[in-house]
Computed example of a mutant assay.
Amino acid sequence: MGKKICVVFPGIGYHSDKPLLYYGKKYMSENGYEIVDLKYGKLPHGLENAFAAGWDVVIPELDSIDWREAEDIVFMSKSIGTVIAARYAAEKDLDVRHIYFTPLAMTLKYADGHGIAFHGTADPLADTDEITKLCAAKNIPLYRYKGGNHSIETKDILWNIKTQKDIAEKYIDYLNF
């Protein structure tokens, strides 16, 4: 049996110790996945600049992985990380299952249909109608959370906890199909 790899692509200020990635990473680890927890260091301002700098930082680490040894590859990504994850999988022609937390419009330029996406409707970095159309065009199921910001959170802590549970149930179902 080959190994299972989960690569975690954080956002600019949303690292893997924050809820979406923390619980996702924990689930993957408990289910036998080797975790590759990427770090970008300090990124410049602006999405395009941050993407380019993040890309340059993680490519050597990703290229050092022997993907042929992997029986299953999951890319769990957040925000700018969704763009890097989708582009890397496309350029390397990897068979990857994606979990996209708050994807950006740029992400869907590279994404194939192998994924699931989560979006807060009050996300200032991603227009709900645009993300909905782009995900539909790529056959990526999109789960929208009314009033959720770019972290899929609101000021209501109980809503946040309930939403984290719902999101986890959906990606667990996706992974275990």
Rank of each mutant, 00 (worst) to 15 (best):
K3G: 09
K3N: 12
C6W: 07
C6K: 04
F9W: 09
P10S: 11
P10I: 12
G11D: 06
I12P: 02
G13D: 13
H15T: 15
K18D: 03
P19W: 14
L20H: 12
G24I: 10
S29H: 13
S29K: 15
E30F: 07
E30G: 13
E30T: 10
Y33C: 11
Y33V: 08
I35Y: 08
L38M: 12
K39P: 00
K42W: 00
H45F: 13
E48L: 12
E48D: 13
N49C: 01
F51V: 11
G54K: 05
G54D: 05
D56I: 00
V58T: 14
P60E: 11
D66E: 12
D66F: 03
R68W: 00
V74P: 00
V74F: 00
V74R: 00
S77L: 03
K78G: 01
S79A: 06
G81T: 04
T82S: 06
V83W: 01
A85Y: 03
A85D: 03
A86V: 01
A86G: 02
A89S: 13
A89W: 02
D95G: 00
D95R: 09
V96Q: 02
T102L: 01
A105N: 04
A105E: 13
A105Q: 07
M106Q: 14
D112A: 11
G113T: 06
G113C: 04
G113F: 08
G115T: 10
G115D: 11
A117F: 03
H119V: 01
G120Q: 06
G120R: 03
T121Y: 04
A122C: 02
A122V: 00
P124I: 14
A126D: 04
A126R: 05
D127N: 15
D127F: 04
D127Y: 02
D127R: 08
T128W: 04
D129V: 10
D129K: 15
D129M: 10
I131Y: 02
I131H: 02
K133I: 07
L134D: 02
A136Q: 15
N139I: 02
N139Y: 10
I140W: 09
P141F: 13
P141W: 13
Y143F: 15
Y143W: 12
Y145L: 10
K146V: 13
K146M: 13
G147L: 06
G147N: 08
G148T: 06
H150N: 14
I152L: 06
T154C: 07
K155N: 14
D156G: 12
W159T: 08
N160T: 07
N160F: 08
Q164D: 10
K165P: 00
D166Y: 02
I167Y: 07
Y171T: 06
I172E: 14
D173L: 14
